[in-house]
Nucleic acid binder design. Structure first.
Length: 235
DNA sequence: AATACTCCCAACCGCCAGTAC
DNA sequence: GGTACTGGCGGTTGGGAGTAT
């Protein structure tokens, strides 16, 4: 199929938005809304911009509920945890951070979080979520070794490999061996999880996933942090 | 002070899925 | 069912700001 451009790219303005353009966009939306069609929006609003560019500018910068202040530690933890489970599903991660956009979260991850030591070691900060999943093994049926039905069948199929690996991983004898084993295990788990998530995102509407589960993970992490006055003692 | 380098963020690009016709 | 169109998303880039030399 021939790709149709959303606008005449040779005639529209590109690059940084001027304060005048911002004001025009903001005023128009506040008075008339978007009209439900971003492609025709620039013409109606009197902007010489591509509709997609207008949409992006509004959603990522001009929307009144955008949070401009620095990310908090709690937000860091949410990003680490959800990234460990979902991978680079920035829009879903951002939906759990009021006032943050997917672009914000993506930029923040790429420029800050992934460079932090623990993230550099493990690729992300899965120790908390995996640890908590391990802690939830008391939810496993002792006879069938299956999860109690707080998870859907599909979610169980994603989580079970992690449980199996993290609870049966042998021989943490020395700290260096422990570090490399943990690192390797998380690398494997990450791949499995990403694979699972990939098939999940293709097969199941993401809306069907119970994000209350992540809330459980986060509250546990925060309560440990509050109790110990710092990062939870892992392993 | 001048230049080189790095970092960060806003914006763009291209692809894909959903929907209307 | 096929095509055209649109919105949404993730990856990538450009360039300004800050820092190091």
């Amino acid at each position: 199929m021939v790709k149709t451009p959303c606008c005449n790219k040779t005639k529209v303005r590109k690059g940084l938005w001027s304060p005048e353009e911002d004001a025009t966009l903001k005023n128009y939306i506040q008075n008339y809304g978007t009209g439900g069609n971003w492609i025709t929006f620039p013409h109606k609003a009197g902007l010489n911009r591509c509709g997609k560019s207008c949409r992006l500018r509004w959603l990522n910068y001009l929307r009144p509920d955008i949070k401009r202040e620095a990310f908090t530690l709690e937000e860091d933890n949410i990003i680490y945890t959800l990234y460990g489970v979902l991978g680079s599903k920035w829009s879903i991660i951002a939906s759990h951070l009021p006032g943050r956009t997917d672009n914000d979260v993506k930029n923040y991850w790429n420029s800050k979080l992934k460079k932090k030591p623990i993230a550099a070691t493990y690729g992300y900060k899965p120790t908390n979520s995996i640890d908590t999943i391990t802690a939830k093994t008391d939810l496993l049926s002792s006879t069938t070794n299956t999860l109690v039905p707080t998870f859907s069948a599909q979610e169980t199929s994603l989580i079970t490999p992690c449980l199996t690996e993290s609870t049966k991983n042998p021989s943490f004898s020395s700290s260096s061996q422990q570090d490399s084993t943990i690192s390797e295990t998380f690398s494997q788990l990450g791949e499995k999880y990403m694979f699972g998530n990939s098939s999940c995102s293709k097969g199941i509407p993401m809306d069907n996933i119970d994000y209350g589960y992540f809330d459980e993970i986060l509250s546990e992490i925060w309560s440990q942090e509050a109790a110990t006055g710092g990062v939870p003692n892992l392993y």
